[in-house]
Design a protein around this nucleic acid. Structure first.
Lengths: 151, 151
DNA sequence: AAGAAATACTACTAAATCGATAGGATATAA
DNA sequence: TTATATCCTATCGATTTAGTAGTATTTCTT
């Protein structure tokens, strides 16, 4: 039951992005360098977060990524589900397609549903803004601001 | 963030074992057959659960496995941690050895700690006895009883 | 005493997943 | 026109997962 680098990198990248204030797009290279993440790999994660409408992007010179909305309106759950897929520990507990033939009488399923609920509750209860506010020494610039680039 | 077969099989095997009442040891072959799990693979999981003092075993003919204590005193968390290792989604959040050099100022760590707590709380809040009681049609026999074999 | 049935222990292996890397194509500002 | 970005797709080595395999040992039954 480990969180993969997708979730770990994705969260860190979003924290980094949010802490840049949002006035101008932040290039991938900046995020990757300061978080020490492979640029090429992080790019794939950014694509997922863009598809999930958590960030926007601008191409070309002076391009980069921006938060798609206020950091207070982006939860850690939004981020993790965007890059990791759903957070259910066992698919059959939620997805009716993945359910086995014993689904109706399966007692274990009860466990997986409880775990699933508690994980999602935990991550949905933390906003990106909250995390940025925790960064020591006022490293953050304008946590709440949304980037001028709206693409 | 998926639970592996270790956790899934381990839990099912324990439910099956607990539902046998506990008067006589239950052979691995019986559990494996009724849960449709590879006998050889399940054996390795049983070894882990034995090391965690959740079950006892008797060798030889008429041998098998028994719960080491009352099903009410075995939590799902006990079982999952026995077969999966710790349930922390990210090691650095708990294990100080695994902590990175940024551990002191890491904001992401706060997230992983919260998730860790919520997962463990969820699984520790469910007992094996509770699950056996949920089995429909009185398939269970004597949930609370502990096996005569104490080895 | 022999045989059957069970756990105990250790090593190996095929398949899937993870964590990247690679090579371009396309867009945009200076 | 050039430098600097994102976008898209494919590939690939390493690790982990899930399961096999072989053998030893213990215990009950006959």
């Amino acid at each position: 039951m480990k969180m993969s680098t997708k979730g770990r990198y994705g969260l860190r990248a979003m924290i980094e992005l949010a802490s840049h204030g949002g006035e101008t797009p932040v290039p991938l290279s900046v995020i990757a360098r300061s978080e020490e993440i492979s640029e090429r790999y992080l790019e794939q994660l950014m694509t997922k977060m863009k598809k999930a409408d958590l960030i926007t992007s601008c191409r070309g010179s002076t391009g980069g990524y921006c938060l798609a909305r206020d950091a207070a309106d982006i939860s850690v759950g939004d981020i993790l589900r965007a890059v990791e897929g759903n957070l259910n520990p066992v698919d059959c507990s939620v997805d009716s397609e993945a359910a086995c033939e014993n689904s109706g009488v399966c007692v274990a399923k009860y466990v997986w549903q409880k775990v699933n609920e508690s994980i999602n509750q935990a991550v949905d209860g933390i906003s990106l803004a909250e995390l940025v506010a925790k960064i020591p020494e006022n490293e953050e610039k304008q946590p709440g601001a949304v980037c001028a680039c709206q693409k």
